[in-house]
Write a protein that binds this DNA or RNA. Structure first.
Lengths: 209, 209
DNA sequence: TTTCATATACCTAATGTTAGGTATATATTT
DNA sequence: AAATATATACCTAACATTAGGTATATGAAA
């Protein structure tokens, strides 16, 4: 299956560089490019449906962090792969907290970039190996929490029922709880996973539970 | 068009309950009742021509399963709607394998029962939403294979976008169509797949596309 | 050529989800 | 003993889907 991407960077030269790197990768297609976050959102509103957004962090008008937050909310299944210079540790952490699923440095080589894209599309996280250690450590800690123990037993139970197509009311009856309680659990699951839609939850559940 | 039904249950009180529920449904007429499978077959042999048999599973002399098998063979256009208590998972699966076209629980409410009858008459399957989940899963699988997803190009395209978490409005913008058109396609997809929820569609899409 | 499948578009009411809260109770950890 | 995590329950407004229609246009099949 072809991976469709949008590249966002305020330096056109850099976009062109990435495009030429990816040009020969037969299963990756650049279906859009943008020089700031706002342009990315416009493309999405126009109905372009990429699988991954490859974005710089520092951009004018809407930066990569705000862009990633908006995407996490509005297009929960769309993955964001962050690009950054070495010296921006804090920004990268902010990006990942905003919901980015991966991070590579700008001097990434071709094979690593392609690997990162494939990894993200499969639903996994990708973090460059040649990174400042503090980022790696922080991320491993985050993953450790986010992937396994983040959801409680009850939340996992409810997520599985959601993935099977049960409504909040049906789940409430099944567990002999209030509908409001189920909705609260739902919201906590949303928060913990950074996924804010029913379809996104089904995707997550089928891939991870 | 009026839907003519026969109700079969070994508890007369239950038959009376269903009859009173259906009494006000102007297009549904109870043209016969029976306390076991043999009585149903006798009615049919006597020339009564119902559209649907509403039958319990456990009954004396001839039970619902054997009754359904006989009907599937002898009266192939006659639909069987199974009624069951919650705890009879295995029996229900046997019923559906025997040729029943629908299944509702005995604590079904009026509107769902009427909906089920209409659905069956139109030639579709009907399965209660508030069912033990293993039955639903089994049935969805069965349907999925039986119908071989004869979705049109457009429908497949839209289903994939739904599975990616797009809303009807987003899809409409993307395809430059009206939101109403997308909803119509949605409904047609529901009908063809026998799946009537967004989460169910995501499940189907991830498993089959 | 009439019928059928496909695709399009519109409408409303009912149901369900999402986002924004607040709030209590219990058990575990620090 | 105080803080934290977990589970429970309630409320409302906004948004989205579902279920019930109706209706038109086009191209392919009978």
């Amino acid at each position: 299956m072809t991976i469709n991407i949008i590249i966002a960077d305020d330096h056109q030269l850099f976009i062109d560089g990435i495009k030429s790197i990816l040009y020969k990768a037969i299963d990756i297609t650049t279906i859009g490019e943008a020089n700031n976050g706002l342009e990315v959102l416009k493309l999405l509103e126009d109905g372009i449906t990429p699988d991954v957004i490859l974005t710089d962090i520092r951009m004018p008008i809407i930066d990569g962090i705000q862009l990633t937050k908006t995407i996490s909310k509005t297009y929960p299944n769309l993955k964001v792969l962050a690009l950054s210079m070495f010296d921006q540790t804090a920004d990268v952490i902010e990006m990942l907290n905003a919901g980015a699923k991966g991070y590579v440095t700008k001097n990434v080589d071709k094979s690593e970039l392609i690997e990162a894209l494939h990894t993200l599309v499969k639903g996994n996280y990708y973090i460059s190996k040649n990174l400042p250690f503090d980022i790696q450590d922080w991320f491993e800690k985050k993953l450790g929490h986010a992937q396994e123990s983040n959801l409680t037993k009850r939340e996992t139970e409810i997520l599985q029922l959601i993935a099977k197509g049960r409504t909040s009311i049906q789940i409430a009856k099944h567990l002999k709880l209030s509908k409001y309680t189920i909705d609260t659990h739902r919201k906590n699951i949303h928060k913990k996973l950074g996924i804010k839609s029913n379809t996104g939850l089904v995707n997550f559940a089928l891939n991870n539970l």
